[in-house]
Simulated assay, not measured.
Amino acid sequence: MQRMGMVIGLQPEKVAEYKALHAAVWPEILSLISECNITNYSIFLKEPENLLFGYWEYVGSDFEADMARMAASSKNQEWWSVCMPCQKPLETRRQGEWWAMMEEVFHHG
């Protein structure tokens, strides 16, 4: 199992919309997340800075393949098309990232 944390900004005028979207995530998206070996997925919002912190645990054996499967899903592409305009990627993210991945520096289990 691999724990993963990530961060992204949220457009101030989109906070209510983003909360509403995630209060009723489409069932197909929830199924896809599970099928791609992601568990314990949470997103936290820090206001007034409007930073989103995402956490999940990856329990599969081929992360790249699972992420490719997720990206290839037409329903997920539709979901991203409504979520991504709400988000504001960090300028300091690595090339190719939308959400900036974070290094785990402590865990107590």
Rank of each mutant, 00 (worst) to 15 (best):
P27S: 12
Y41D: 00
K19D: 07
Q95M: 11
E97P: 01
I38S: 11
E49F: 10
P48S: 02
K14N: 12
M84F: 15
E78N: 10
F44P: 00
T39F: 08
C83N: 14
E103S: 03
W99T: 03
M1Q: 12
A71W: 09
A65D: 07
C83E: 14
W98G: 00
I38T: 09
E64Y: 08
T39Y: 09
I33R: 13
L52K: 00
V82Q: 15
F106Y: 15
P12M: 04
M70G: 06
Q95L: 11
Q95H: 10
I29A: 05
R69T: 05
K46M: 12
M70D: 04
W79A: 08
L90I: 08
S34W: 11
P27I: 05
A68T: 09
A24P: 04
H107M: 11
A65I: 09
E78T: 13
E17L: 15
W26P: 06
A71I: 05
S81F: 07
R69N: 08
P12T: 08
D66H: 03
H107P: 03
V15C: 03
Y41I: 02
E47I: 07
L52R: 05
R69Y: 08
L21A: 07
L30N: 13
S73Y: 00
E13Y: 10
A100V: 02
M1D: 09
W80R: 13
G60R: 02
K46Q: 13
W98I: 03
I43F: 11
T39L: 09
G60H: 04
E97S: 01
F63D: 01
E49S: 13
W26Y: 08
C86H: 07
E49Q: 13
K46L: 14
F63C: 04
E91A: 00
L10M: 10
P27F: 05
C36M: 07
Q95G: 03
H108P: 01
W79Y: 09
W99K: 00
N50W: 06
M84Q: 15
F53Q: 09
E103R: 07
S81D: 06
F63S: 05
T92K: 00
W98S: 01
Q11G: 08
E47W: 03
L90W: 06
A20K: 13
E49R: 12
M84S: 13
G60A: 04
Y58V: 06
C83A: 12
C86W: 06
Q95A: 11
E64T: 04
C83Q: 12
M101L: 12
Q87C: 04
D66M: 06
E28D: 14
E13G: 11
A72R: 07
R94L: 12
M6L: 11
N50I: 04
D62M: 03
I8V: 15
E57D: 13
E35T: 08
L52H: 04
P27T: 08
P85W: 05
E103M: 02
E97A: 01
A65H: 07
G5P: 02
